Amino acid sequence: MTFLNRNLAMLPLLALLLAGCSTPQQTIKTQPNTVYLLDHGDEVNINVSGEQDMSMRVKIDNSGNINYPFIGVMQLKGKSPEQVSKEIADKLRGNYLKNPMVTVSVAEYRKVYLLGEVKKPDGYAWEPGLTAEKAIALAGGFTDRADRKDIQVRQSGSGQLLNNVAADSAIQAGDTIIIGMSFF
């Protein structure tokens, strides 16, 4: 093995060692085309074309359900608005309407919560494209005692707590952001 080939073979090992020396920052980037899945706390608009009595705005309850006229209780948790549109149309077809045109859209997303060293800790409506940095801005920014690098995120779906989250990380609806206190 030549000197050059031996050094090239050591590059992956060197990269691995250098990666272990840096301070880890967890990034929760999401795919830009990620489908939004409904959950409790979301409010949805259901529009049935030409049917005023079947069009409504409804909030998904804690069990992930809504009560819809002519159908009854429907589980919306874990479904996309498009899936719910199709499900409602399928259940209304035949018994009530010939060819229902149903549109379901999110009227109000569930909240993200900010705790710790932000000026206005509270729940704020999630919006597509929300990052940790933008959420902190919604809460009035950091307090004087905030450790700006101690950003934790408790993910709503799994309950997993991520430490040292990068400010440009994507935040999902229902997540809780916790800002730590600086000791200096």
Results as ranks from 00 to 15, higher is better:
Met1Asp: 09
Thr2Cys: 05
Met10Ser: 15
Ser22Asp: 13
Ser22Phe: 05
Pro24Glu: 03
Pro24Trp: 03
Gln26Met: 09
Gln26Tyr: 04
Thr27Gln: 15
Thr27Gly: 11
Lys29Pro: 01
Gln31Tyr: 00
Gln31Ser: 12
Tyr36Gln: 05
Leu37Trp: 06
Leu38Trp: 01
Gly41Arg: 07
Asp42Glu: 11
Val44Met: 03
Ile46Asn: 05
Val48Glu: 10
Ser49Arg: 12
Ser49Pro: 00
Gly50Val: 11
Glu51Val: 11
Glu51Leu: 03
Gln52Met: 11
Gln52Val: 13
Asp53Pro: 13
Met54Pro: 08
Val58Phe: 00
Asn62Trp: 04
Ser63Arg: 10
Asn65Cys: 05
Gly72Pro: 08
Met74Asp: 04
Leu76His: 01
Lys77Asp: 10
Lys77Gln: 12
Gly78Met: 04
Val84His: 10
Lys86Ala: 10
Asp90His: 08
Asp90Ile: 06
Leu92Cys: 04
Leu92Asn: 12
Arg93Asn: 10
Gly94Glu: 02
Val104Ala: 06
Val104Ile: 03
Val106Thr: 13
Glu108Asn: 14
Lys111Asp: 15
Val118Tyr: 02
Lys119Ala: 15
Asp122His: 07
Ala125Ile: 09
Ala125Lys: 09
Glu127Thr: 11
Pro128Met: 01
Gly129Ala: 07
Lys134Ile: 03
Gly140Asn: 07
Arg145Phe: 00
Arg145Gln: 10
Ala146Lys: 09
Asp150Cys: 03
Ile151Met: 00
Gln155Ile: 12
Gln155Trp: 06
Ser158Val: 02
Gly159Ser: 06
Gly159Pro: 06
Leu161Pro: 09
Asn164Glu: 02
Asn164Trp: 04
Val165Glu: 06
Ile171Ala: 00
Gln172Val: 05
Gln172Glu: 06
Ala173Glu: 07
Thr176Gln: 09
Ile178Cys: 00
Ile179Ala: 06
Phe184Ile: 09
